Amino acid sequence: MLSVDEAIAAIMDGAAPLGAEKTGLSEIVDRIAAEDVKARMTQPPFPASAMDGYAVRFVDMKETAVLTVIGEAPAGAPFDGKVGEGEAVRIFTGGAVPAGADHVVIQEDVTREGERITVNEDQEQPRNIRAAGIDFKKGDMLAEKGARLHEIHSALFAAANIAEICVYRRPKVAVFSNGDELKEPGSELKPGEIINSNHYALCAMIRKWGGEAIYLGCASDSEDAIRDYFKRGAETDIIIPVGGASVGDYDFVKSAFAKEGGETKFSKVAVRPGKPVWCGRIGETRVIGLPGNPASAIVTAALFVQPLVRRLAGEDWSAPFWTAALAAPVSANGGREAYMRAQEKDGVITLAPNQDSSLLFPFGTANALLRRLAHAPALEAGDKVEFVRLR
């Protein structure tokens, strides 16, 4: 039985970012840049007015000064000329500041009569002009290769006159459930049946990590049915069967995997919850089998599926451990590394009162997994512990 670190190392063996592809700006959020992204233009490309007013020479700015308006410069239609002594150009926010002007006097500070303006307020210094390139300049680095792109990147790249970005391909992750007792939400349940719920969380987590989650459905408790689901996922990068990996009479996932030509890397991990988690390959497709109990499935997905999905999606990522103070004592841990549902707030971490592996309800408020190493001693309130963030 492998340790958590050994299992992660086995899963990550040979894992590398998938090929790159071009995508439009509306599709880049949470993607990983496959190349450096540099500005194709300077922004703003010209000195621009920050206010509505008049472009003038600051040397002419004396209170009661009278200037002649020689034209206007709305945004997108620059004034074709130069501002000279005693002259002004009507300008609007975003408009290109004409040659000769080094100041914009705001419209509230002047009185206009026909083609003349009178300055009513003292102008202390040149202002209200945004210099060319004040945001960024052509050739500036906007995002480095390997960066996870977010919402503002799409606007930033657009402003730099970039329409497409080269990003790493999202790994395709096929998920299927297993069990005759599982029914979809909204079903009328017969005695012994339960709702099939794990895949909703797992697929959402996979998408958040940068993968393309494909839910294949729920396989019945037969070897042939499960083999068919492995076949359906054959063109994906990762297959995640959920459940059916224990040693019961109706657990056929591993035997179906073997008959499909699967090669097992490991079959158990010294972790609680989630001991039955396993890993292998069918050809080039990686397979990580998760336990069926909700807590076991979600915890092992966070520990073992997450780093693989993120790596294939192009992210150089490993689980960051944070520290917090215990809100209450915890007892000594046993021989398996444990990850306990908890809520961390303001540097204090509180365990969910019931850590049973069948429970989903604690995840409603849990935002962390408190880590307890194998054979860790008992701790008191206030002692520092490590945790992994769930959100």
Rank of each mutant, 00 (worst) to 15 (best):
residue 186 G to I: 00
residue 158 A to D: 13
residue 169 R to I: 00
residue 269 V to K: 02
residue 216 L to T: 02
residue 152 I to E: 15
residue 200 Y to W: 05
residue 205 M to S: 11
residue 242 V to T: 12
residue 161 N to E: 14
residue 212 E to N: 09
residue 198 N to G: 03
residue 199 H to Y: 14
residue 223 E to P: 01
residue 241 P to M: 02
residue 269 V to R: 00
residue 260 E to S: 07
residue 176 F to W: 05
residue 240 I to T: 01
residue 231 K to W: 02
residue 267 S to R: 14
residue 178 N to C: 15
residue 167 V to M: 06
residue 256 A to H: 02
residue 222 S to I: 02
residue 180 D to Y: 09
residue 184 E to R: 13
residue 179 G to D: 05
residue 203 C to H: 04
residue 253 V to Y: 01
residue 265 K to R: 15
residue 244 G to F: 07
residue 236 T to D: 07
residue 187 S to M: 10
residue 246 S to L: 09
residue 248 G to F: 09
residue 155 A to M: 14
residue 263 E to G: 09
residue 179 G to R: 01
residue 236 T to R: 10
residue 165 I to M: 08
residue 198 N to D: 10
residue 227 R to F: 01
residue 149 L to N: 00
residue 206 I to N: 04
residue 155 A to L: 15
residue 203 C to M: 10
residue 205 M to H: 11
residue 187 S to D: 12
residue 161 N to M: 12
residue 247 V to C: 09
residue 208 K to G: 09
residue 248 G to R: 12
residue 156 L to P: 03
residue 157 F to W: 03
residue 194 I to G: 07
residue 250 Y to S: 14
residue 263 E to V: 15
residue 258 A to E: 10
residue 176 F to P: 02
residue 188 E to Y: 11
residue 193 E to W: 10
residue 156 L to C: 07
residue 178 N to V: 15
residue 171 P to K: 06
residue 234 A to K: 13
residue 224 D to W: 05
residue 252 F to R: 03
residue 154 S to Y: 07
residue 152 I to C: 09
residue 198 N to I: 02
residue 232 R to K: 15
residue 204 A to V: 03
residue 206 I to Q: 07
residue 152 I to D: 14
residue 163 A to Y: 11
residue 227 R to M: 14
residue 200 Y to N: 07
residue 255 S to D: 12
residue 181 E to G: 06
residue 202 L to K: 11
residue 252 F to T: 01
residue 182 L to G: 07
residue 160 A to M: 10
residue 211 G to C: 00
residue 209 W to A: 02
residue 264 T to R: 13
residue 173 V to L: 00
residue 269 V to S: 04
residue 211 G to S: 00
residue 185 P to M: 12
residue 207 R to K: 13
residue 186 G to Y: 01
residue 262 G to Q: 04
residue 169 R to V: 00
residue 261 G to K: 11
residue 164 E to S: 09
residue 265 K to V: 14
residue 157 F to L: 04
residue 197 S to Y: 06
residue 259 K to F: 02
residue 228 D to M: 08
residue 167 V to Y: 03
residue 198 N to Y: 00
residue 204 A to F: 05
residue 245 A to R: 08
residue 187 S to I: 08
residue 154 S to I: 05
residue 165 I to Y: 07
residue 217 G to N: 06
residue 249 D to M: 12
residue 239 I to T: 14
residue 262 G to W: 00
residue 262 G to D: 01
residue 262 G to V: 01
residue 165 I to N: 05
residue 212 E to P: 03
residue 164 E to M: 09
residue 238 I to E: 03
residue 166 C to Q: 14
residue 189 L to Q: 06
residue 256 A to G: 05
residue 268 K to D: 08
residue 165 I to L: 10
residue 178 N to P: 00
residue 190 K to H: 13
residue 156 L to T: 14
residue 245 A to V: 15
residue 159 A to P: 02
residue 175 V to C: 08
residue 172 K to M: 06
residue 215 Y to R: 10
residue 171 P to W: 02
residue 162 I to W: 04
residue 178 N to H: 13
residue 162 I to N: 05
residue 207 R to H: 06
residue 252 F to S: 02
residue 160 A to I: 04
